[in-house]
Simulated assay, not measured.
Amino acid sequence: MEYFSAIQAAELISTVFYTFVGVALMGVVWKVIDWLTPFPIMKEIEQDQNMALAVLIGFLFLSISIIIAAVILS
């Protein structure tokens, strides 16, 4: 019970706020990547089953999320 009393409302609100900021930034990054590529990424991954592109996009999102988390925490 002491653990829950130690959590303050400001910490909870800031956690929720920064979660939405991080998700919004990831959405913006996705739109920019989709806009910059000369081919439709979703078609390549879903219909043509381009696994290399899927892995590349996955690693790209992982690296972008680590950068966003570092910026938010600093």
Rank of each mutant, 00 (worst) to 15 (best):
M1Q: 00
M1R: 00
E2K: 01
E2I: 12
E2Q: 06
Y3L: 14
Y3V: 09
Y3K: 13
F4L: 08
S5G: 04
S5V: 06
S5E: 03
A6G: 14
A6M: 13
A6S: 15
A6F: 14
Q8D: 08
Q8E: 07
A9L: 10
A9R: 04
A10F: 13
A10P: 10
E11A: 12
E11G: 15
E11I: 11
E11P: 13
L12C: 08
I13W: 08
I13A: 10
S14M: 15
S14T: 14
S14K: 11
T15M: 11
T15P: 01
V16M: 08
V16K: 04
F17Y: 14
F17R: 15
Y18N: 15
Y18Q: 02
Y18G: 06
F20S: 08
V21T: 14
V21D: 11
V21M: 01
G22W: 01
G22K: 06
V23T: 05
V23H: 00
L25S: 05
L25F: 11
G27Y: 02
V28S: 08
V28E: 06
V28D: 03
V29Y: 02
V29I: 03
W30G: 04
K31E: 04
V32A: 04
V32H: 00
I33D: 00
I33C: 01
D34Q: 04
D34W: 00
W35N: 01
W35F: 13
W35V: 02
W35R: 12
L36P: 00
T37L: 07
F39L: 07
F39R: 07
F39V: 09
P40V: 12
P40R: 05
P40S: 15
P40H: 09
I41N: 10
M42Y: 03
M42T: 09
K43H: 14
I45N: 06
I45C: 11
E46F: 14
E46G: 01
D48T: 13
Q49P: 01
N50G: 07
N50I: 08
N50W: 02
A52F: 03
L53W: 00
L53D: 01
L53I: 07
L53S: 02
L53A: 05
A54P: 00
V55N: 06
L56S: 05
L56F: 14
I57M: 13
I57G: 01
I57S: 02
G58L: 12
G58T: 07
F59R: 06
L60D: 01
L60I: 12
L60V: 10
L60C: 12
F61T: 02
F61I: 03
F61H: 06
F61G: 10
F61V: 03
I64T: 04
I66L: 03
I66C: 01
I67E: 05
I68F: 11
A69D: 15
A69F: 05
A70Y: 03
A70E: 14
V71E: 06
V71Y: 12
V71P: 07
I72D: 05
I72P: 03
L73A: 15
S74D: 12
S74P: 08
